[in-house]
Design a protein around this nucleic acid. Structure first.
Lengths: 218, 218
DNA sequence: CCGGCCGCCTGTACTTGTACGCAACAGGTA
DNA sequence: TACCTGTTGCGTACAAGTACAGGCGGCCGG
């Protein structure tokens, strides 16, 4: 079964003989999303194609388009699912800095661990219920720390920007190796994508927010 | 002439009759790069394809591959050229914060103004001479501000991450419009990509660097 | 002047996303 | 039962990147 799935995913092999149609109801939007999530785990985002999904579902490639607008539309929903499955909102303990750090680190891990998520985050704003909830959580932390609404927004946006940016650069550097001619110093510097570096930059950001952002009466 | 180029670029029209070969030496790596730069100005990055470049140069698409490894290889060199042409290193005046801000803002403008540059920056580290020079400049500013080598590196990396991240998110949101169901507050917040927002976040970062980063004896 | 080698240009074809339009099938109606 | 229609699955085809193999032609040694 799993073997079948893997086999069919290898090269979009048609299990049904050409001309033979899949019965009605063979696929649905949710079945497609599930197949995509499964594929992310087996063959990965890069290898997952519309054709491989169709093969996995045992239908013709174009059949999927009855249920999804295009591949991006599908990925949106897939990533919303990943977001739901990831951290169920961290506990409300510790300083506001540590809570924001935990949230940002969680997002970074998701984006780096799943290229599909990064892909979607870089394509357009994520406004799914889960994403908005995460945003509200971070805004709440900021407001509880005493910042006014405008400053909280600005601070949140900065943290989000930094987090997504770091994930993007970390991912792009993950498999990259410097050409022979490159100086050690340059390639080291240019590839500073460790979690520690992430924490340092985020620390600067949070410190700046603490010193600069507007607080209400507090 | 320019009209010809534009015409041919429209839809990869072959000017030479099929079977007729372009004379040897018709193309070269630099001619391809020049054609690509021209195309960025006329039809833009999205519309620029290997086939449109080949048409513009009046050769078969595959002919380009004698001189470029693949399209990314070409884009690397094209973007290096854009980088050279952009800001000839800002003057060394003002506070270290304002100098770093100017440098970051310049990079943001380049990345947002030219999608090709963002594309390349998100693909792998940029280690061209020009890019390294810009990096050294920013490191020098930090060192002159009294930060030790390690802190300067970390601070530079954070600024660079924030800048590229902001450009990526700004670009992805530029043409995006919220679906009907979206709350005004959510879509506003999620789309905070103004230059002012960039400056605010960068301000936090610089402030945090000032307060947190290690200084030498100074 | 001739034959062979090699470098440069090109046709063909495969992969992937997806536009278009049609055909097969399930019900409902006559 | 025969037709009508909406739904749903699908064949075909095209654009873009690019692997591969081949052929045209210029140049060099003889």
């Amino acid at each position: 079964m799993a073997a079948w799935g893997a086999e069919s995913a290898i090269k979009g092999a048609r299990r049904r003989t050409p001309g033979e149609r899949a019965p009605r109801g063979t696929i649905s939007r949710s079945k497609i999303v599930e197949a995509a999530l499964r594929s992310l785990g087996t063959i990965g985002f890069e290898q997952m194609t519309i054709r491989s999904l169709a093969a996995e579902l045992d239908v013709a490639p174009m059949s999927l388009y009855r249920y999804i607008r295009d591949k991006d539309d599908l990925m949106d929903e897939v990533v919303e699912e990943l977001l739901k499955q990831s951290q169920p909102l961290p506990a409300a303990a510790g300083s506001w800095q540590s809570r924001l750090t935990a949230a940002a680190e969680g997002l970074r891990r998701l984006l780096v661990g799943e290229p599909a998520a990064l892909y979607v985050y870089l394509r357009h704003p994520i406004i799914s219920a889960t994403a908005l909830r995460r945003m509200e959580l971070m805004l709440k932390i900021l407001r509880e720390a005493g910042y006014d609404a405008a400053s909280s927004k600005t601070a949140y946006a900065a943290i989000q920007t930094y987090t997504v940016g770091f994930a993007a650069l970390q991912t792009s550097r993950a498999d990259w190796t410097a050409p022979e001619g490159t100086s050690r110093a340059a390639s080291e510097l240019v590839a500073m994508t460790s979690p520690k570096q992430f924490a340092s930059g985020l620390g600067y950001l949070l410190s700046g927010i603490e010193h600069e952002a507007g607080r209400t009466a507090q």
